[in-house]
Amino acid sequence: MERRNLLRAAVLGGTAAAFGGTLWRGAAHAAPAQPGAGPYGALGAADANGIRLPSGFTSRVIARSRQKVSGTNYTWHDAPDGGACYADGSGWIYVSNSEISSTGGAGAVRFSSSGTVTGAYRILSNTNVNCAGGKTPWNTWLSCEEVDRGYVYETDPWGVKAAVRRDAMGRFKHEAAACDPQRGVIYLTEDVSDGAFYRFRPTTWGDLSSGTLEVMVGSSATSGSVTWARVPDPTGATATRNQVSGTKRFNGGEGCYYANGTCWFTTKGDNRVWAYDAAAQTISLAYDDSLVTSGTAPLTGVDNVTGTASGDLYVAEDGGNLEICVITPAGVVAPFLRVEGQSASEITGPAFSPDGRRLYFSSQRGTSGSSSGGITYEVTGPFRT
């Protein structure tokens, strides 16, 4: 039996939770997503920025690495990576990590209500390979170091308060974080080939200075029940993923996004999008490129992930043909945009403005293929909100 069919047989019976919760209420028999017509139609020709978009959508460049952000004195950082948006009065702020060794950190761009750039500034400096992270309900940005025994830093998107290192959240090769306010936990991914999936329970919700780090425990199956166990030593003197017997392994944890009782996270090593149903404590596959039953898998090199109130997930590619793909609540996966002429780059940091009408993301290495060539974009159009 071909690997695709074998895996499909193994998971098809247990994937109803892949689209669990009210966010995915339209998926009656939620097998892993399959290619189909996207909600916005086919991609058009590349625009002046080299981006192919559906009809009705437009793009603009917001910032370029090593160049001043237009209208400001701030020089945009190299290798822009994970990002998030924050309401700022009638405008908003987009924050972005810098995946650079030793001097990484994060920066931010402020926008007026009309989308005009009104400021840009640094919010975190001199940290190490800041890859992804996550937004908290109390409007801070968790910037994660993707190095062995890396830290999580809690930062202020407004750049007023000093960043704070959050040791209690564990030391490992951090990738992304997603907050679950219903249960008072933060989910964390780990970017190694035999990585784990974690959750951090703050002693007091909203205060990350202390708490308990837990790791997911379960069989090697791609669907079914899981449990959580306390990590004895979050300092990582012994790798956190190797401290608890039965830790469930994931091949290269990447993006992480929570909404309405479900935490979605991606694993780049096997091109999967996972869904954790927090109420049922079950895990399943929302997408697996090896389970595409016809045609070519549209989504490969899965990486950062975000979503909208409509229930659509947007998954960025590190590799593939440099697309952001949309996975709909009906279980259809399709390209939303494609970046042309930047094959040595990756797409990072997808995040929507608070009103859901603008999507921000970066091409980490741009046309040059170098970390100094990063480009941060905005896409505007009739998004489903």
Rank of each mutant, 00 (worst) to 15 (best):
residue 32 P to T: 01
residue 258 Y to D: 03
residue 254 E to K: 08
residue 297 A to K: 00
residue 7 L to I: 12
residue 231 V to K: 01
residue 276 Y to K: 03
residue 152 V to E: 10
residue 68 K to F: 10
residue 174 H to W: 06
residue 133 G to I: 06
residue 53 L to K: 04
residue 160 V to S: 12
residue 171 R to T: 06
residue 42 A to Y: 05
residue 267 T to V: 08
residue 117 V to R: 05
residue 186 I to E: 08
residue 268 K to G: 11
residue 177 A to Y: 05
residue 377 Y to V: 11
residue 44 G to E: 05
residue 39 P to C: 01
residue 377 Y to H: 13
residue 86 Y to D: 09
residue 51 I to R: 04
residue 62 I to P: 03
residue 339 V to A: 09
residue 249 R to C: 09
residue 361 F to M: 04
residue 138 W to G: 10
residue 342 Q to W: 04
residue 130 N to C: 14
residue 184 G to H: 01
residue 371 S to L: 15
residue 170 G to N: 11
residue 336 F to L: 10
residue 175 E to F: 06
residue 14 G to V: 12
residue 202 P to G: 03
residue 11 V to L: 09
residue 168 A to Q: 06
residue 128 N to F: 02
residue 163 A to T: 07
residue 117 V to F: 04
residue 80 P to T: 08
residue 298 P to H: 00
residue 189 T to N: 14
residue 34 Q to A: 05
residue 348 T to F: 01
residue 153 Y to E: 11
residue 260 N to D: 08
residue 37 A to W: 02
residue 106 A to H: 12
residue 280 A to F: 07
residue 236 G to R: 03
residue 97 N to K: 13
residue 100 I to V: 15
residue 306 T to N: 10
residue 89 G to V: 04
residue 383 F to T: 09
residue 317 E to Y: 02
residue 373 G to C: 07
residue 359 L to M: 12
residue 245 S to Y: 12
residue 136 T to F: 01
residue 198 Y to C: 10
residue 380 T to A: 14
residue 248 K to N: 06
residue 144 C to S: 14
residue 259 A to M: 14
